[in-house]
Structure formats: structure tokens, C-alpha cells
């Protein structure tokens, strides 16, 4: 009888011990899973090329990881971009929204008269331009599309490049695609223009004899005197540059990078630059549109 009781007690205590260990294990496991979920969710939230790199959409891209220029910007500059009220580019977007609704020309047409709500009709534009435009048999970028609408449908004079109006409208239209990955088409009729843009990218130029690739493909992440070189993507344009104290077009940046190596820049809106714009957007296909970005 005594022996039997001992056996029973032993069994109970044994059971309790295993149970406790099991519970601890279970808790640990749960914690582990929860932590993992947290990490994954953070990853998903950050995979926009700003805080974490993204994979290029096209596997032929020479860059295996895409980093937005945001990643290389100074801390205060990043903070400025993320704060909608502090982002000086927001003023341009607001002005663009006004221009969108403004009726002009003899027939009193606004952009909205044809395209209605930009947040619906313009959602894709910032992602896919430049595009092939058959009537002119060449590529056109957003600025040129806006001016075509202005001339053909509103019967108004076009806006010159770098005017406040054109920058504002372009920024407003592209901002509708904010957060969506860039995805330009380089096949079909766009193919030869893509090839030209690519050739431009790899061509050494200027007295300093450098190509875009020398800085933005071979040396990104390294400092060039006081500048930290980025991969030189187009996803934030039009961009507010602190150095310019103004919003600026991608072609203004191209001219700056050309002059930096003492090369003769091309004209705003020139075919050479639009082809380069196509090629550059292809290199950045997969990165999110950040318009209006803020950069040093």
C-alpha cells in the first residue's frame, strides 16, 4: 500500500515537472514566432528601396539591389521628405492641384475637364513614363505629355522647362503614383530609344572623361569629396534640392551631372535626355515613386 502510494506520488510530480517545462518551451516558441512576425512585417513595410534595398523588376538590370537616393541622403533631409508639412516640395504639388482644376484657353478647359479625378486617372502615369508616342515617332516624358495636352486640347502656349507651372503640374501628376513601383516599358517601339539611353549612360564624356556608370554604378555608397554617391535613380523627380532651394526636373539633374564632368550639357527636353530618362527609369524599375523627393 505504501509502495503503491509512493509510486502514485512519483508519477504526479513527474507529470508536473514535464508540464512546466512544456509550458516554458511553448511560451518561448510563441515569443519566437511573434518576434519573427514582427521582423517580417517590418521588412515588408520597409522594402521600398529607402531603408532596405529592393530587387530590380528586370533581372537583366546591372544592379542586383536597388537603393533609392533617399538611402544616401542626410538624416535631416530624409526627415524633411517624410514630413508632408515640412517637405518644401509639397507646396509645388498643391500648386499643381490648383493648375489641374484651372480652366484656360478659349474653350475654358482644365486638365480635370478631360481627366477628372487625378488620383484615379493619373495613378499609373508617374510609373510608366517616358512612353513611345506614335504621332511624333519618339519617346515623350511627363513634362512633354503635359505640354501636348496644353497645346492640342487647351489651345494654350506650352510651359517652358523649369517654369514653376510645369514643375508644379509634373510633380502633382507624378505624386499620384507615390508608393507605387516604377515600371517603364522598354520593348516594342521603345526598344531602340532604350538602347540609345543605355549607350548615353555608359559613354565617357567631358574633360574629366567619366560616364554615369563611373559614379553611379561602380562607386555608389562611396564619398566623392563632400558628396555621398547614390545609384543615381530617377524615382524622386521632380525633386526638391536643398542646393537649388527649389524643385527641379530630372533634366536639370542630368545637366548638373554633365557639367560636373565638364561636358557640354544637352537642352532640357532634348531627345538624348528623354532616352536617358527612359533608361534610368528602367534601371530603377522596382523602386517606389517618391515625388516630390528631397535631396541634398
Amino acid at each position: 500500500m505504501f509502495l503503491k502510494m509512493m509510486k502514485y506520488r512519483f508519477a504526479v510530480s513527474e507529470f508536473a515537472r514535464y508540464d512546466r517545462a512544456g509550458m516554458v518551451l511553448c511560451l518561448l516558441g510563441l515569443l519566437f514566432v511573434a518576434f519573427g512576425c514582427l521582423l517580417i512585417s517590418q521588412d515588408a513595410a520597409a522594402a521600398d528601396g529607402r531603408t532596405k534595398s529592393v530587387s530590380p523588376l528586370d533581372e537583366k538590370n546591372p544592379l542586383s539591389n536597388l537603393w533609392s537616393g533617399f538611402y544616401y541622403a542626410k538624416k535631416e533631409t530624409k526627415a524633411m521628405q517624410l514630413d508632408d508639412f515640412g517637405n518644401p516640395g509639397s507646396f509645388y504639388v498643391e500648386e499643381g492641384a490648383e493648375l489641374w482644376k484651372k480652366k484656360v484657353g478659349a474653350q475654358g478647359k482644365s486638365c480635370a475637364s478631360c481627366h477628372k479625378d487625378a488620383s484615379v486617372s493619373m495613378k499609373e502615369a508617374g510609373v510608366r513614363y517616358p512612353v513611345y508616342f506614335a504621332p511624333l515617332d519618339r519617346m515623350i516624358n511627363l513634362e512633354q505629355r503635359i505640354n501636348l495636352c496644353r497645346q492640342d486640347f487647351q489651345k494654350e502656349k506650352k510651359f517652358e522647362y523649369e517654369t514653376r507651372e510645369l514643375l508644379a503640374l509634373t510633380a502633382f501628376v507624378r505624386a499620384q503614383s507615390r508608393g507605387m513601383p516604377v515600371r517603364v516599358k522598354i520593348t516594342g517601339p521603345a526598344k531602340p530609344y532604350y538602347e540609345k539611353g543605355k549607350a548615353f549612360y555608359y559613354q565617357r564624356r567631358g574633360q574629366l572623361d567619366m560616364s554615369c556608370a563611373h559614379c553611379h554604378e561602380n562607386n555608389y555608397g562611396k564619398s566623392l569629396r563632400s558628396n555621398l554617391l547614390s545609384q543615381g535613380h530617377a524615382n524622386g523627380f521632380p525633386t526638391y534640392r536643398l542646393k537649388w532651394q527649389k524643385l527641379g526636373s530630372l533634366h536639370r539633374r542630368f545637366r548638373g551631372c554633365n557639367k560636373q564632368v565638364r561636358a557640354k550639357p544637352y537642352a532640357y527636353g532634348s531627345e538624348a535626355y528623354v532616352n536617358l530618362e527612359l533608361y534610368l527609369n528602367w534601371r530603377g524599375s522596382g523602386l517606389e515613386v517618391e515625388t516630390p523627393a528631397v535631396r541634398n
Partner: peptide
């Protein structure tokens, strides 16, 4: 190399006018 040629004036592309035909 990315390093410029500091004493050469030929085999360049689109050198801007102020620097044309001048070594660095």
C-alpha cells in the same frame, strides 16, 4: 578607371567650351 587624364586633350566626348582643347 574613373581617374581623369590630367594632361591630354584628345579622345574626349563633348567637352564643354571653356575646357575644349585644354589639359586639366
Amino acid at each position: 578607371t574613373i581617374m581623369p587624364a590630367f594632361y591630354r586633350i584628345e579622345r574626349f566626348t563633348r567637352v564643354d567650351d571653356p575646357f575644349l582643347n585644354k589639359p586639366i
